[in-house]
Computed example of a mutant assay.
Amino acid sequence: MATYVLIHGAAADAWYWGPLAAELRGRGHEVIAPDLPCGDESAGLGAYADAVVAAIGDRSELVVVAHSFGGFTGPLVCARVPVDLLVMLQAQIPAPGETPGAWWDTTGYGGARQEADRRRGVPEGTEEDPVTLYLHDTSAELAAELLTHHQQPQAAAPFGDPWPLDAWPQVPTEVLLSAGDRFFPVEFMRRLAVERLGIEPDEMPGDHLPMLGHPEELAERLEAYRAAL
């Protein structure tokens, strides 16, 4: 039995991991999905990692799954506790010393996003609604639940924190992308994974939150990674 540690992204709580957590528990695993201090203006990246490490306690056989902004926290956790596997799920991949606030420019996100939007016929400057941008492959019921009850105010504090590691932690790492994500276009995310980690990522169906739209397939992908260790 493994312990899956699920790290959520910005401006949200851990609720959105629920369908995936149910799939993993159904396979006999323990699941930890702590809420991060998104609303705390004094909480930097270290405090986000502290929250995850505290939730882990003395558990072992850890598989850490970091999603979106959780990509800045997941490797920090791996540097502090023994982890068997880190999965970067449609996650931001940081570089040493880079702040989350600077990540958008240093990675070339803006140009990549404009090109992806152009290819799907979105006029430049269009502000898309959250369902169209993030949740188009999620059921209307789950999308409404997330947007109505589980969006959180996001403090600015962690976005000015330089990522503190000198190098990627020595932990087996996989990168899994959502092929249909319109917010983090898959071509951009693939390039980043290759450039920064030397990893050719895998793809699965889904929007920005594949744990809501495709929890069974996501569980199967995670289990396959774990079995291959």
Rank of each mutant, 00 (worst) to 15 (best):
V63C: 13
V65K: 09
V65H: 07
V65T: 13
V65P: 08
V65G: 02
A66G: 11
A66F: 00
H67E: 09
H67R: 04
H67W: 13
H67D: 06
H67P: 04
H67V: 11
S68G: 10
S68V: 11
S68I: 10
S68Q: 07
F69H: 06
F69Q: 00
F69N: 01
G70E: 02
G70Q: 00
G71K: 01
G71S: 04
G71C: 04
G71P: 03
G71T: 06
F72K: 02
T73S: 09
T73F: 05
G74H: 08
G74V: 06
G74W: 06
P75H: 09
P75L: 13
L76A: 09
L76S: 07
L76H: 02
L76W: 02
L76G: 05
L76F: 08
C78K: 02
C78H: 04
C78N: 11
A79E: 09
R80C: 03
R80M: 05
R80L: 04
R80N: 07
R80Y: 05
R80Q: 14
V81A: 13
V81C: 10
V81G: 10
P82Y: 05
P82V: 06
P82A: 10
P82T: 13
V83P: 06
V83Q: 13
V83H: 10
V83L: 05
D84Y: 04
L85A: 04
L86S: 07
M88G: 05
L89H: 03
Q90L: 11
Q90D: 15
A91Q: 04
A91I: 13
A91F: 02
Q92R: 11
I93F: 00
I93V: 13
I93W: 00
P94E: 07
P94S: 11
P94G: 12
A95N: 10
P96T: 13
P96S: 11
P96V: 14
P96D: 11
P96R: 05
P96C: 13
G97K: 10
G97L: 09
G97Q: 10
E98Q: 13
E98Y: 04
E98T: 12
E98I: 09
T99Y: 01
T99I: 05
P100A: 02
P100K: 02
G101K: 04
G101A: 07
G101D: 08
G101S: 09
A102F: 01
A102N: 14
W103Y: 08
W103H: 08
W103V: 04
D105C: 00
D105T: 14
D105A: 15
T106M: 09
T106H: 08
T106G: 07
T107A: 09
G108E: 08
G108D: 05
G108K: 04
Y109E: 09
Y109I: 02
Y109R: 11
Y109W: 15
Y109A: 03
G111R: 14
G111S: 14
A112F: 10
R113L: 13
R113F: 14
R113I: 09
Q114M: 15
Q114K: 14
Q114H: 14
Q114T: 15
A116G: 11
D117E: 15
D117H: 12
D117W: 13
R119L: 14
R119V: 01
R119T: 05
R119S: 12
R120P: 01
R120V: 03
R120G: 04
G121E: 02
G121C: 03
G121L: 03
V122Y: 08
